[in-house]
């Protein structure tokens, strides 16, 4: 079991997981989002090969209003 933070909220997973699988598992599906792990940007092309491990911080962001 691993504990990670997704957008500042703790989540419990069975084991380490790829970004691709995490997005599907968490219900983001094909939503327009971008991802950072441990404060570093993860481009879409690397979702399959980027593994999220215990205590990782994951940021998942989407478009919003801005000034």
């Amino acid at each position: 079991m691993i504990l990670i933070n997704i957008n500042g909220v703790q989540a419990e997973l069975d084991s380490s997981i790829s970004v691709s699988d995490l997005l599907i598992k968490q219900g983001y599906g094909d939503k327009l989002v971008a991802v950072a792990v441990g404060g570093s940007f993860v481009p879409k092309s690397l979702y399959d090969n980027t593994i999220i491990n215990n205590e990782d911080d994951v940021e998942i962001v989407a478009p919003m209003q801005g000034g």
Binding site: N7, G8, V61, A62
Partner: peptide, 21 residues
């Protein structure tokens, strides 16, 4: 038009805004 990013929940409420822009 300036835009930004926010943390997205899986419920995803930001899509309507982006569709307008």
């Amino acid at each position: 038009i300036t835009v930004s990013l926010r943390r997205e929940s899986s419920a995803g409420k930001g899509q309507e805004f982006w569709d307008i822009i």
